[in-house]
Amino acid sequence: MEQRASPWRIAVNASAVAILIFLILPSLIIIPISFGNANEIVFPPEGFSLILFRRFFNEPGWVESAWLSFRVALWATAIAVCLGVPAAYALARGRFPGKRVIALFLLSPIMIPHVVIALALFVYFFQIHLSDGMLRLICAHVVATLPFVIVTSHAGIRNIDPVLEQAATVMGAPRVLVLRRVTIPLLYPSIISGALFAFLISFDEIVISWFISKAGYTPLPVKMFSSIKWEVSPVLASISTMLTILSVVIAVIVVLILRKQSDREGAGRS
């Protein structure tokens, strides 16, 4: 699209680009560093090698932590989806007293500072004698990720015309079949993008994990943070690069899913 460039427009575009660079540069700077071969973090890197990535996989602890984070994220996501999607359905379609209060309660982990949640969970887990390191992480991460699953699937359900479910019911489909053949297939994009966000948040979570993780159950972000306190290991750069790539890939998938969905709906409204 050709558009006449007014000075105002140029200024707006330039400042937008500047802010974008400001936001993205710290992440990008890490990437070349991770391909350096120094024993400490330097920029610009001297030469190119994969030695830092090799160190990540060879040094004890890193892969174990990554694997732990992965499993925790997977479990937390699965549980958050199983709890969050039905809750979102009830909030979107149901008519019952106290709906707003319940919605506010379910979304509260977004609004309450993570430190507060972390401390609360620490005390709570102590009181109920929950001492399994893995279970503690999974439960805590469900709390942190649930609101995101609820928000995305709630928006998805609001987009589904209730008349579709009505039509399926009148033509003879019992409730379960309506959910299986109509509601859930239409909700897939929202469920998947909610799940991906949940996974990413859990994989990335540090504040709560720091409070409640136990010896032998150190998730990757916690291990990174504790390692930086003793020595600024350049291995961190390689991990950051991999995390950045993971985030970008997930974000792109979510965008693609949501775009496909809006295309479908846009064309559906004739």
Binding site: D161, V163, L164, Q166, A167, T169, V170, M171, G172, A173, P174, R175
Partner: peptide, 14 residues
């Protein structure tokens, strides 16, 4: 509703 054996046609087609 699903046991009444009726058919229904809606304004926005559904």
């Amino acid at each position: 509703a699903h046991k009444r054996g009726l058919g229904m046609v809606f304004q926005n087609y559904a």
